[in-house]
Design a binder for these strands. Structure first.
Lengths: 353, 353
DNA sequence: TTGAAAGCGTTACCAT
DNA sequence: ATGGTAACGCTTTCAA
């Protein structure tokens, strides 16, 4: 069948014969082309291809139209369609290529499925290297019906999006933004959880790993803050520990461990924790005897090391829930902003603490 | 400033006064609104806002137009714009939410940056739960100038995209697709690399972990095939080993290890390798003495376990390179399909093999 | 320097 | 049952 499509333009001779084999980019077929080929009007084509029920088209005509569309390889033009319709069902999400964990990946996957079932189209828009306002404008140009932003947003940016017709703007982050619906994920809770556990075990000088990698501060800063809060309540000290995700950096940190005099450390997440724990062991620091180590994210790999890694388990919201929130808000844009507190953190105590 | 925006429509009296505070969704401002407010024509608005150099607009006018746009919160309508222009600079990429590793993440990030610098817009389109043809149609509706597909594509799908105006269709996968440019990443090479290493070390009955998780077959199948090829050349046996990414599954497999009589195993990647290696050790199987274990991806974590994990290091293509390929093809669509062989795999021998 | 008007691909309404 | 036509928001000649 494709052979036909390829050969038609050459043999049809419809376009003035161009430089023989200059397969000059054939124009993209439009519904008008389909109409012409089928010998009907553009309106009829639209009716047939969209199965419009309010109008009756004879079966032979339907067939002719379908055949013509097939033959030309006609595909409707989404931009023209939504321009005409005055709205789209696009849910826009900035594509953040920060190293997201499997938890978040799974959440996104769920979200995609749930939204698709509600007949929305999810589009991730790359906005690397744009300032916040610039990015918001770029998103607004696409006229999405809803925007889902993992991360923060300035109130002005929310306003830009709403002015552009976005019925729902939902953020997923540490605090709510004026005008937007919010899924709160306060990472301080993660730090609090870890900190509380450590002080409860009698640790009094607690290190907190702060990844040197950029883009992680969004999470690391609140987590550090959470540990601070938990420690303050018990009169314990907190020491931030910058650490890059390399063996060298970990070895360097472990090398001056005794000088730091720490008896516990919250290592940002399981990966940094495993890295640091290995370096500590190699430097002769006993875990958990001399120093307790805990991570976060509850990775499977953390269970495989010895001692088994204690960790903070995070429960991500279900994509289902977010999809329903989006849909509800899109359908009833009048209602006030909803705020959901969604981060549930709990200690998983294993052997390293 | 926003206060002004809110009040304008009420005072203009253009819409019939609705129920007082029913902040009924104000219509999205168009360039016509801007023109009206600034007291100029739509053409002038377009000239000013796009900095059209071929026409001179007086400074006071420019200022009035800009102020009006600002006041209304005007943002151009991307669909209308590209509809009129007849083309877009959208590079479409299906959003695959298969658990991709940090390698691929990094590659995507590079790609985004490089394309942005070339003034393209990257859009990831979620096509979960669509058949291949259905997905291709959905992509074609967006009229992207280029499509980048990590994974396979049927030749018919390529044709649909090209008919819809896509100047470049590039796949990243194990084999080339008719009509499309190809970045070849033949994962058999990974398996070959691992297999060759194992037989060279004298292993004769080699297990190959095949993840039970769906969505990974695209990689696991060719990797298995590669090991088979390497083993066949040396007269060694190959045994596929289904394994889910859970401790239970690993323990179960390790429990019947002796019965399997394997002296080497390629565990798909480092994560599965670490999982299996721990289970083997817990079951009393000595690594590498009794069984050699190797992974792939060269994760940092693999260096932290004991024995240190031998692994296959993969070198992903640079996003830069792909971006340049895309741009080149978009600008000169006539040229024949380019095929680049991009997967470089090499053994990193550590202690587990 | 500015404005009027055509046209991009689609669909909804109103005539036939 | 089918076709003509207008309109969606924008850019770009062409005229004034």
């Amino acid at each position: 069948m494709r052979h036909v499509m390829v050969q038609i333009p050459k043999q049809a001779g419809q376009p003035p014969i161009e430089s023989e084999e200059a397969q000059g980019p054939r124009p993209v077929p439009t519904s008008a082309d389909v109409a012409r080929l089928a010998g009907v009007s553009r309106a009829t084509v639209s009716y047939v291809l969209n199965n419009t029920s309010s109008v009756r088209i004879s079966e032979p005509t339907r067939h002719r139209v379908r055949a013509a569309a097939e033959e030309l390889g006609y595909v409707p033009h989404a931009a023209a369609r939504s321009l005409r319709a005055g709205h789209s069902r696009m849910v826009l999400m900035p594509a953040s290529h920060v190293p997201v964990g499997p938890l978040f990946s799974h959440f996104l996957n769920e979200l995609h499925w749930a939204l698709r079932r509600l007949d929305y189209t999810v589009v991730q828009y790359g906005s690397v290297g744009m300032g916040g306002d610039e990015a918001a404008r770029a998103w607004a140009e696409l006229r999405p019906v809803a925007v889902f932003v993992p991360g923060m947003l300035a109130p002005g940016q929310v306003e830009v999006l709403k002015r552009a017709g976005a019925k729902a703007v939902v953020t997923l982050g540490p605090e709510r933004v004026a005008g937007a619906h919010a899924l709160l994920m306060d990472h301080r809770e993660v730090g609090r959880c870890a900190g509380a556990h450590l002080v409860e075990r009698g640790r009094r000088r607690i290190g907190v790993v702060v990844p040197a990698e950029t883009g992680l501060q969004v999470f690391s800063e609140p987590r550090l803050q959470g540990v601070r809060e938990a420690a303050a309540a018990a009169g314990a000290e907190v020491v931030p520990l910058p650490l890059a995700y390399t063996e060298e950096s970990a070895a360097e940190l472990a090398g001056r461990w005794r000088a730091l005099g720490l008896d516990g450390v919250f290592a940002y997440n399981d990966e940094y924790a495993m890295l640091l724990m290995r370096a500590l062991q190699d430097a002769g620091v006993e875990v958990p005897g001399e120093t307790a180590v805990i991570g976060a994210d509850d990775l499977l790999l953390g269970r495989l090391v010895r001692p088994r890694l204690s960790t903070v388990h995070l429960k991500m919201p279900s994509g289902q829930v977010l999809a329903e929130l989006l849909d509800r808000v899109v359908r009833a844009p009048g209602a006030g902003p909803e705020v959901h507190d969604l981060l549930a953190a709990s200690m998983v105590v294993r052997e390293s603490s």
